Amino acid sequence: MTDGERARALLGGPVTFLGSGASCVAYSDGKRVVRLARTGQAARFEVDAAIRRALMQEGVPTPEPLSTGTLPDGRPFGVDTLARGDDSGPSDEGWRDLGRALAALHALPHGGFGLLHDRSGAFVGVAPTPAEGLCSRLQDAWPFGRAELEDHPLVGTAPALAPLLAPRRDDLENVVHGPTALCHTDLHGGQVRWREGRLTALLDFGDASIGPPAWDVASLAFFHGWDSARTTGLPCGREAALFGLLLALHHARRSVTLGRPARMRAAVTFARGCLQRL
Protein backbone atom coordinates (compact mmCIF):
# COMPACT_ATOMS: atom_id res chain seq x y z
CA MET A 1 0.00 0.00 0.00
CA THR A 2 1.32 3.44 -0.92
CA ASP A 3 1.24 6.44 1.40
CA GLY A 4 -1.47 7.96 -0.78
CA GLU A 5 -3.58 4.86 -0.32
CA ARG A 6 -3.00 4.93 3.42
CA ALA A 7 -4.06 8.58 3.55
CA ARG A 8 -7.18 7.80 1.52
CA ALA A 9 -8.09 5.00 3.92
CA LEU A 10 -7.65 7.28 6.93
CA LEU A 11 -9.75 10.11 5.45
CA GLY A 12 -12.31 7.87 3.80
CA GLY A 13 -12.12 9.30 0.29
CA PRO A 14 -9.95 10.83 -2.44
CA VAL A 15 -6.89 12.77 -1.33
CA THR A 16 -4.38 15.15 -2.89
CA PHE A 17 -0.68 15.18 -2.08
CA LEU A 18 0.17 18.39 -0.22
CA GLY A 19 3.88 18.13 0.35
CA SER A 20 6.66 16.53 2.34
CA GLY A 21 9.14 17.52 5.00
CA ALA A 22 12.10 15.95 6.72
CA SER A 23 9.93 13.76 8.94
CA CYS A 24 6.53 13.33 7.25
CA VAL A 25 4.38 13.51 4.13
CA ALA A 26 0.97 15.20 3.97
CA TYR A 27 -2.26 14.62 2.04
CA SER A 28 -5.62 16.40 2.12
CA ASP A 29 -9.23 15.80 1.13
CA GLY A 30 -9.87 19.55 0.96
CA LYS A 31 -11.12 19.82 4.54
CA ARG A 32 -8.68 17.73 6.54
CA VAL A 33 -4.97 16.96 6.42
CA VAL A 34 -3.34 13.66 7.27
CA ARG A 35 0.37 13.57 8.01
CA LEU A 36 2.26 10.28 7.84
CA ALA A 37 5.67 9.86 9.43
CA ARG A 38 8.43 8.86 7.08
CA THR A 39 9.93 5.44 7.70
CA GLY A 40 12.61 5.72 10.36
CA GLN A 41 11.75 9.34 11.25
CA ALA A 42 10.57 10.44 14.69
CA ALA A 43 7.49 12.52 13.91
CA ARG A 44 6.02 14.02 17.09
CA PHE A 45 2.29 14.16 16.50
CA GLU A 46 1.04 13.62 20.07
CA VAL A 47 2.78 16.63 21.60
CA ASP A 48 2.10 18.68 18.48
CA ALA A 49 -1.63 18.07 18.93
CA ALA A 50 -1.45 18.78 22.66
CA ILE A 51 0.26 22.14 22.09
CA ARG A 52 -2.32 23.17 19.52
CA ARG A 53 -5.19 22.26 21.85
CA ALA A 54 -3.61 24.43 24.55
CA LEU A 55 -3.10 27.32 22.13
CA MET A 56 -6.67 27.12 20.85
CA GLN A 57 -7.83 27.71 24.42
CA GLU A 58 -5.75 30.91 24.37
CA GLY A 59 -7.35 32.08 21.13
CA VAL A 60 -4.34 31.35 18.92
CA PRO A 61 -5.32 30.40 15.35
CA THR A 62 -4.01 26.91 14.65
CA PRO A 63 -5.43 23.80 12.93
CA GLU A 64 -7.68 21.71 15.14
CA PRO A 65 -6.18 18.27 15.89
CA LEU A 66 -8.74 15.57 15.07
CA SER A 67 -6.90 12.32 15.75
CA THR A 68 -3.50 10.70 16.14
CA GLY A 69 -2.52 7.07 15.90
CA THR A 70 -0.16 4.47 14.50
CA LEU A 71 -0.23 2.78 11.09
CA PRO A 72 0.03 -1.02 10.84
CA ASP A 73 3.69 -0.61 9.87
CA GLY A 74 4.36 1.23 13.14
CA ARG A 75 4.57 4.76 11.75
CA PRO A 76 2.61 7.46 13.59
CA PHE A 77 0.05 9.65 11.85
CA GLY A 78 -1.98 12.74 12.66
CA VAL A 79 -5.21 14.13 11.22
CA ASP A 80 -6.03 17.86 11.50
CA THR A 81 -8.35 20.42 9.97
CA LEU A 82 -6.92 22.06 6.85
CA ALA A 83 -5.41 25.49 7.50
CA ARG A 84 -6.28 27.94 4.74
CA GLY A 85 -4.80 31.25 3.71
CA ASP A 86 -4.21 33.40 0.65
CA ASP A 87 -1.24 34.85 -1.20
CA SER A 88 -1.38 38.23 0.52
CA GLY A 89 1.60 37.69 2.80
CA PRO A 90 1.88 39.29 6.23
CA SER A 91 1.08 42.91 6.99
CA ASP A 92 2.64 44.64 9.98
CA GLU A 93 -0.47 43.75 11.95
CA GLY A 94 -0.08 40.17 10.78
CA TRP A 95 3.43 40.06 12.23
CA ARG A 96 2.02 41.43 15.47
CA ASP A 97 -0.59 38.64 15.38
CA LEU A 98 2.28 36.19 15.16
CA GLY A 99 4.06 37.90 18.05
CA ARG A 100 0.96 37.50 20.22
CA ALA A 101 0.62 33.85 19.20
CA LEU A 102 4.25 33.16 20.13
CA ALA A 103 3.87 35.00 23.42
CA ALA A 104 0.95 32.68 24.25
CA LEU A 105 3.10 29.67 23.31
CA HIS A 106 5.98 30.91 25.44
CA ALA A 107 3.66 31.29 28.43
CA LEU A 108 2.43 27.68 28.44
CA PRO A 109 3.54 25.72 31.53
CA HIS A 110 6.60 23.60 30.86
CA GLY A 111 9.57 21.84 32.43
CA GLY A 112 12.94 20.39 31.53
CA PHE A 113 14.93 21.43 28.47
CA GLY A 114 15.10 20.70 24.76
CA LEU A 115 12.76 18.70 22.56
CA LEU A 116 9.55 17.67 24.25
CA HIS A 117 8.52 14.17 25.17
CA ASP A 118 6.01 13.10 22.52
CA ARG A 119 2.95 12.74 24.72
CA SER A 120 -0.17 14.54 25.80
CA GLY A 121 -0.32 16.24 29.17
CA ALA A 122 2.55 18.22 30.68
CA PHE A 123 5.05 19.79 28.28
CA VAL A 124 8.40 18.47 29.48
CA GLY A 125 11.73 18.55 27.67
CA VAL A 126 13.75 15.38 27.28
CA ALA A 127 16.99 16.86 28.69
CA PRO A 128 18.00 17.70 32.28
CA THR A 129 20.25 20.69 31.44
CA PRO A 130 20.06 23.66 29.07
CA ALA A 131 23.13 22.54 27.10
CA GLU A 132 21.80 19.01 26.61
CA GLY A 133 18.44 20.50 25.66
CA LEU A 134 20.03 22.61 22.95
CA CYS A 135 21.86 19.57 21.56
CA SER A 136 18.62 17.59 21.44
CA ARG A 137 17.31 20.03 18.81
CA LEU A 138 20.27 21.75 17.11
CA GLN A 139 23.00 19.94 15.21
CA ASP A 140 26.58 20.84 16.03
CA ALA A 141 25.91 24.40 17.18
CA TRP A 142 29.39 25.34 18.42
CA PRO A 143 30.42 25.45 21.24
CA PHE A 144 27.83 22.77 22.13
CA GLY A 145 28.49 20.35 19.28
CA ARG A 146 31.33 17.93 18.74
CA ALA A 147 33.28 20.00 16.20
CA GLU A 148 35.80 22.59 17.23
CA LEU A 149 35.25 26.02 15.74
CA GLU A 150 38.10 25.69 13.25
CA ASP A 151 36.57 22.43 11.96
CA HIS A 152 33.01 23.69 11.71
CA PRO A 153 31.55 23.92 8.17
CA LEU A 154 30.42 27.50 8.76
CA VAL A 155 34.03 28.56 9.31
CA GLY A 156 35.20 26.27 6.53
CA THR A 157 32.95 28.23 4.16
CA ALA A 158 33.66 31.68 5.63
CA PRO A 159 37.04 31.59 7.44
CA ALA A 160 36.81 35.29 8.32
CA LEU A 161 34.08 34.39 10.82
CA ALA A 162 36.44 32.37 13.04
CA PRO A 163 38.19 35.32 14.81
CA LEU A 164 34.79 37.00 15.26
CA LEU A 165 33.09 33.94 16.75
CA ALA A 166 35.92 32.68 18.99
CA PRO A 167 35.66 35.55 21.54
CA ARG A 168 31.91 34.87 21.81
CA ARG A 169 32.33 31.36 23.23
CA ASP A 170 31.37 32.32 26.79
CA ASP A 171 28.47 34.43 25.56
CA LEU A 172 27.12 31.53 23.51
CA GLU A 173 27.48 29.09 26.40
CA ASN A 174 25.65 31.48 28.72
CA VAL A 175 22.77 32.49 26.41
CA VAL A 176 21.05 29.13 26.87
CA HIS A 177 20.72 29.74 30.61
CA GLY A 178 18.11 31.92 32.27
CA PRO A 179 14.33 32.00 31.89
CA THR A 180 12.88 29.38 29.57
CA ALA A 181 9.83 29.18 27.33
CA LEU A 182 8.05 26.63 25.21
CA CYS A 183 9.41 27.59 21.77
CA HIS A 184 8.34 26.67 18.24
CA THR A 185 11.98 26.74 16.98
CA ASP A 186 11.27 26.40 13.22
CA LEU A 187 9.37 29.45 12.01
CA HIS A 188 9.93 29.24 8.26
CA GLY A 189 7.27 30.48 5.86
CA GLY A 190 5.58 27.10 5.53
CA GLN A 191 4.61 27.20 9.21
CA VAL A 192 2.25 30.16 8.94
CA ARG A 193 -0.88 30.99 6.96
CA TRP A 194 -2.09 34.51 6.21
CA ARG A 195 -5.33 35.96 4.88
CA GLU A 196 -5.54 39.62 3.84
CA GLY A 197 -2.30 40.18 5.73
CA ARG A 198 -3.47 38.72 9.05
CA LEU A 199 -2.42 35.47 10.72
CA THR A 200 -4.91 32.64 10.16
CA ALA A 201 -2.84 29.69 11.41
CA LEU A 202 0.43 28.81 13.13
CA LEU A 203 1.42 25.25 12.23
CA ASP A 204 3.58 22.28 13.16
CA PHE A 205 4.90 22.11 16.71
CA GLY A 206 6.68 18.80 16.20
CA ASP A 207 10.08 20.43 16.85
CA ALA A 208 8.88 22.51 19.80
CA SER A 209 11.54 22.71 22.49
CA ILE A 210 12.16 24.23 25.91
CA GLY A 211 14.74 27.00 25.78
CA PRO A 212 15.17 30.78 25.85
CA PRO A 213 12.34 32.72 24.17
CA ALA A 214 15.09 34.37 22.10
CA TRP A 215 15.19 31.06 20.19
CA ASP A 216 11.96 31.92 18.37
CA VAL A 217 13.02 35.51 17.76
CA ALA A 218 16.23 34.27 16.15
CA SER A 219 14.30 31.70 14.10
CA LEU A 220 11.98 34.43 12.82
CA ALA A 221 14.94 36.59 11.91
CA PHE A 222 16.73 33.76 10.10
CA PHE A 223 13.77 33.01 7.86
CA HIS A 224 12.10 36.44 7.57
CA GLY A 225 14.68 39.08 8.53
CA TRP A 226 15.24 41.17 11.64
CA ASP A 227 12.75 43.85 10.59
CA SER A 228 9.93 41.29 10.55
CA ALA A 229 11.07 39.80 13.85
CA ARG A 230 11.08 43.28 15.41
CA THR A 231 7.60 44.02 14.09
CA THR A 232 6.19 41.07 16.06
CA GLY A 233 6.83 43.04 19.24
CA LEU A 234 9.06 40.33 20.68
CA PRO A 235 12.43 41.42 22.13
CA CYS A 236 15.13 41.59 19.44
CA GLY A 237 18.13 42.41 21.58
CA ARG A 238 21.47 40.88 22.39
CA GLU A 239 20.14 37.46 23.42
CA ALA A 240 18.34 37.06 20.10
CA ALA A 241 21.50 37.95 18.17
CA LEU A 242 23.57 35.47 20.19
CA PHE A 243 21.01 32.74 19.71
CA GLY A 244 21.01 33.64 16.04
CA LEU A 245 24.68 32.68 15.90
CA LEU A 246 23.79 29.25 17.29
CA LEU A 247 21.13 28.89 14.61
CA ALA A 248 23.59 29.93 11.91
CA LEU A 249 26.01 27.24 13.09
CA HIS A 250 23.18 24.67 13.17
CA HIS A 251 21.97 25.52 9.67
CA ALA A 252 25.50 25.43 8.31
CA ARG A 253 25.91 21.88 9.58
CA ARG A 254 22.46 20.93 8.28
CA SER A 255 23.37 22.26 4.85
CA VAL A 256 26.12 19.65 4.72
CA THR A 257 24.02 16.87 6.23
CA LEU A 258 21.14 17.48 3.81
CA GLY A 259 23.22 18.51 0.80
CA ARG A 260 21.61 21.95 0.52
CA PRO A 261 24.25 24.58 -0.33
CA ALA A 262 21.71 27.42 -0.33
CA ARG A 263 21.26 26.88 3.40
CA MET A 264 25.00 27.38 3.89
CA ARG A 265 24.88 30.71 2.09
CA ALA A 266 21.94 31.78 4.26
CA ALA A 267 23.77 30.66 7.42
CA VAL A 268 26.89 32.68 6.57
CA THR A 269 24.87 35.79 5.76
CA PHE A 270 22.84 35.46 8.93
CA ALA A 271 25.91 34.92 11.13
CA ARG A 272 27.45 38.12 9.77
CA GLY A 273 24.24 40.02 10.47
CA CYS A 274 24.03 38.68 14.03
CA LEU A 275 27.63 39.70 14.74
CA GLN A 276 26.87 43.21 13.52
CA ARG A 277 24.05 43.41 16.07
CA LEU A 278 26.33 42.62 19.02
Rank of each mutant, 00 (worst) to 15 (best):
L98W: 00
D97I: 10
S20C: 09
F205G: 03
A181N: 07
L242T: 01
R96Y: 05
A9W: 12
T185W: 05
P65F: 04
R230G: 04
F205Y: 15
L202H: 09
P72E: 14
G13E: 13
E239K: 11
D227G: 11
L82N: 11
G21D: 11
M1L: 13
A241N: 14
G206L: 05
L116N: 00
G121A: 03
C274Q: 06
T180A: 07
D186I: 02
A218W: 01
G19A: 14
L66D: 14
C236F: 09
R169N: 09
G225R: 08
L249M: 11
R100F: 04
A103Q: 15
G233D: 13
Q41A: 12
G244P: 10
V25P: 07
G13H: 13
G13Q: 15
L11T: 11
F45E: 05
L18Q: 12
L102D: 14
L66C: 13
L116G: 01
R272K: 07
H251S: 06
P65M: 08
A208S: 15
T62E: 02
P128E: 14
T16F: 07
L246W: 03
D86H: 13
P76E: 06
L165M: 09
T269F: 00
E46Y: 00
R96H: 05
A241V: 08
L249N: 03
D151N: 15
D87P: 06
C135V: 09
D92L: 15
G4W: 03
A166E: 15
L249A: 04
Y27L: 03
G12I: 11
Q57T: 13
G190A: 13
L71T: 13
L182A: 06
W215A: 05
I51L: 15
A214G: 00
V176G: 00
G12F: 11
T39R: 12
G244L: 05
H117L: 08
R35Y: 00
E239T: 06
R168G: 03
H177F: 09
D204I: 01
H152F: 09
N174C: 10
P261A: 12
A127C: 07
D118W: 03
P63V: 06
T62C: 12
L220Q: 06
V256Y: 04
R195A: 14
P130K: 08
L278P: 09
L138M: 11
V126C: 07
R277F: 09
Q191E: 11
A26M: 14
M264T: 07
L164W: 10
G225Q: 08
H152A: 05
A103V: 08
H250C: 12
L203F: 13
R32W: 07
A9N: 08
P163D: 06
M1E: 12
Y27K: 01
A49W: 08
S120V: 02
R84T: 15
C135I: 02
V256K: 10
G4I: 03
A141I: 10
W194K: 12
D87M: 11
S255N: 14
E150M: 04
G206Y: 05
A43V: 09
R265N: 03
A271L: 01
A101P: 01
P153G: 11
A267Q: 03
L172D: 00
G19F: 10
M56L: 12
R84G: 05
R100C: 05
L278Q: 14
R168S: 06
P235W: 13
A267T: 02
A266D: 12
D73F: 14
A9E: 15
L187A: 04
G233R: 06
G99D: 03
L164Q: 15
F222P: 00
R53P: 01
P153L: 05
F17A: 14
R53Y: 00
